[in-house]
Amino acid sequence: MSEQGLAVLPPGIEVIERGWLSANNVLLFDGNEATLVDSGYVSHAAQTVALVGGALAGRRLARLINTHSHSDHIGGNAAVQRAFGCRIGVPAGMADAVARWDEEALLLSVAAQQGEPFQADFTLASGERLVMGGLEWKALPAPGHDMDALVFHAPDARLLISGDALWRQGFGILFVEVIGAGGGIEAVRETLEAIARLPVDRVIPGHGAPFVEVDEALSAAFARLQAFEQDGARMARNAIRACITFMLLEQRSIDLDALPNYLDEVHLYREANRRFLGLSPEALAAWLVVELERAGVAKRKGHVLFVT
Rank of each mutant, 00 (worst) to 15 (best):
M1S: 14
L6E: 13
A7D: 09
P10Y: 10
G12N: 06
G12F: 02
E14Y: 01
E14T: 15
E17G: 00
E17Y: 00
L28P: 01
F29D: 08
E33A: 09
A34G: 08
A46R: 13
Q47G: 03
T48N: 11
A62W: 01
R63Y: 02
L64N: 04
I65G: 01
I65A: 11
H68Q: 13
H70V: 15
G76P: 08
N77H: 05
A79P: 02
M94I: 15
A97T: 08
V98M: 05
V98A: 06
E104H: 14
L106T: 14
A111C: 14
Q113W: 03
Q114W: 01
F118S: 10
A120F: 02
D121C: 02
A125M: 11
S126M: 03
R129M: 08
M132K: 04
W137A: 11
A139T: 11
P141H: 12
A142I: 05
P143A: 13
D146Q: 04
M147N: 14
D148C: 09
A149N: 07
L150K: 10
F152D: 08
F152V: 09
D156H: 06
D156A: 15
L159R: 05
L159A: 10
I161N: 04
G163Y: 02
L174F: 00
F175S: 03
F175H: 12
V176Y: 01
V176A: 04
G180V: 07
G184Y: 00
I185T: 13
V188L: 06
E190T: 14
A194L: 03
P199M: 07
I204E: 01
G206E: 02
F211P: 06
F211A: 09
V212G: 15
E213Y: 03
A221G: 08
F222H: 11
R237S: 05
R237W: 15
T245P: 00
M247V: 05
L249A: 11
I254S: 04
Y262V: 14
Y262P: 00
N273G: 06
N273D: 11
N273A: 03
F276C: 11
G278M: 03
P281I: 13
E282W: 01
L284E: 07
A285S: 14
V289Q: 07
L292K: 05
R294N: 12
A295G: 09
A295I: 02
V297C: 07
R300A: 13
H303N: 14
V307I: 15
